[in-house]
Design a binder for these strands. Structure first.
Lengths: 340, 340
DNA sequence: CTGAAAGCGCTTACAG
DNA sequence: CTGAAAGCGCTTACAG
């Protein structure tokens, strides 16, 4: 492969001049610039990334830590990854991807060896054991998901509390008085998946305020168990007229469950989910839902991360915690309850 | 961050000795080794990846080119990515991920700048425009998917022809005489997705040989269109007793379509799909299927790639084209046709 | 406007 | 068994 030395020789200039001509970091005569550009083209020159990283202490690579946990639903995770990856590319960064179970190790490897300029953490838990490592690292970090302690990192998440209120208020306004909320599996809560109880607690509180009944339950993250869970809940609460779904696997299973029970939404049951529009299309879900905006959250995280990497953020500019306001996408699966 | 120089100083040895003590590439006295190890621990030393890459011309990174095309089904792609990523990690490699639409550009960027030691291509088309670039690159490449021309790369794929025959034979043996095959969208074929017609042609040929009828059709890659496609096909061929599905989106939509038509497999219709077991679980698909083995294919591709990277493959060892033999996973969705 | 030189942090022949 | 030095391919102060 051609090196900057080859370019310099062919262009008849010094290596530093060749380098400056390419970076544009100092004024270069039109003639020299042209000769360098020609040489670059003729030789098919591309800078060696390792050498550049060594000289500049910048890799133009972002580390992406994604975990595919047993109790979470993989296709939902993919959306976040693509949001991060595509935004990174637009901003001129590549993605070093870690999917291994041991996120601490992956994080340490990437940051200690200086393979990356910054880190995006997905799947953030309440007390995420990767956070202490990330805070120690010299590279900035951005999270998708809200931990208990946000110091030292930029944090982006859906406002799950608002989402819980919105779901309950929407159905309350239509006249519903007894609702069932299906959350993610209880393991997720135990592991520290705060988004579960953030939505759930807010929904419970909203129901209490409105004086209506809300049965908050957990559902499996897997088929076919989650289908059985849904049948069980519909059996257990026959008078409930509204179903709130904060569990992607449950949402994916619901069409089949409703068919099996010969129920139609919204005629027999009003349904509101919480998932992305892309997810709804993939799984052909006809239910109104709170948009979880994974692509937007991924974009926001990368944008802020790059601002910090490139020093546009100001050395000691405080870190941000930013919530995306949930919006209800109406797919016509809610209405006034039967006989109302 | 600590450098090898710091380690050497603290251990009271030269930098080369420190380096050799860590690599084990020459004999080191027990005493020196111990001092170096202690220094490494005390300083929290990790080698700088860029510097090492520059010195050794090895990055221990594999480039993974995945495309999320409009006419393909994203969750299916994810399986391949995880197979590649997890195997790479086991073998000590990290993954540089490109998801951008312009795969040629991504490939060139990664290989020219020497960011990676090798490349895995997913989503390979019959005449894939990334292949000429990959062949020119100094790094070895492994493909998941069979192109027309396999020179210069290692190729791994499901034996789609065998899969087509297996599907037809299986139903023929049970007594079926009229079948419908739903393939991926016709765009995929036009773009050069050879796996579509490889399975289809083999199925057609097998049907001809057995003297039975096979209606080969294309289906959309999206919900809800593909559901309508399925209804249309079942309307068009009311006497068909067997359904072959080589289209992930169609497989995902089928439970709903069958419910809507009040049909049960295998009582009313025998169904055989072609997708992975993981995919079946995610989408709760109760149909017998040809295992597409994405994780296994990802593993195979990475293993061979690493063999070449590390020179265990022998400089001019011929490239391989390896097919995974399809296996039918029996989920009980096939039986003798009604009234047989 | 341009060049010679130092330095980024490693590894590895070369010498002893 | 160990050390001094060269070199990987860049960038960027320093000098002119």
């Amino acid at each position: 492969m051609a090196t900057i030395g080859d370019v310099a020789r062919v262009a008849g200039v010094s290596r530093s001049t060749a380098s400056y001509a390419l970076s544009g970091k100092r004024t270069i005569s039109a003639d020299v610039r042209r000769r360098v550009e020609t040489a670059v083209r003729d030789l098919g020159y591309t800078p060696n990334a390792g050498a550049r990283a060594l000289a500049t202490a910048q890799t133009r690579v972002i580390g992406l830590l994604a975990q595919f946990l047993e109790d979470e639903f993989a296709p939902a995770m993919l959306q976040y990854m693509l949001g991060v990856s595509n935004t990174a590319r637009e901003l001129g960064y590549d993605i070093l991807l870690a999917t291994e179970a041991d996120g601490r190790n992956a994080l340490r490897r990437m940051t200690d060896s200086r393979m990356v300029d910054g880190i995006v953490l997905l799947n953030v838990a309440e007390h995420d054991d990767r956070l202490p490592i990330l805070r120690e690292a010299p590279q900035p970090g951005a999270l998708v998901g809200l931990p208990a302690d946000c110091t030292g990192v930029d944090v982006f998440d859906l406002d799950f509390e608002d989402a819980g209120r919105l779901m309950v208020d929407h159905l309350h306004r239509l006249g519903h008085r007894e609702l069932v909320l299906v959350s993610q599996p209880e393991h997720v809560v135990e592991r520290g998946g705060a988004y579960v109880w953030r939505l759930q607690n807010a929904a419970i509180e909203a129901a209490r305020t409105r004086g209506i009944t809300l049965h908050a339950e957990f559902g499996s993250a897997h088929q076919p168990e989650v289908g059985r869970d849904l049948h069980g809940l519909l059996d257990a609460y026959p008078r409930a007229t509204g179903l709130l779904i904060n569990n992607e696997a449950a949402a994916a299973a619901l069409p089949t469950v409703l068919h099996e029970r010969r129920l139609t939404a919204p005629a027999d049951l009003s349904v509101v989910g919480r998932y992305s529009d892309e997810f709804a299309r993939t799984f052909s879900l006809p239910y109104s839902s709170i948009e979880s905006a994974p692509d937007r959250l991924g974009r926001m995280a990368v944008r802020e991360l790059v601002r910090r990497i490139e020093g546009q953020a100001g050395a000691d500019e405080p870190h941000v915690v930013r919530f995306v306001t949930p919006e209800l996408v109406d797919r016509g699966s809610t209405a006034a309850p039967r006989g109302d």
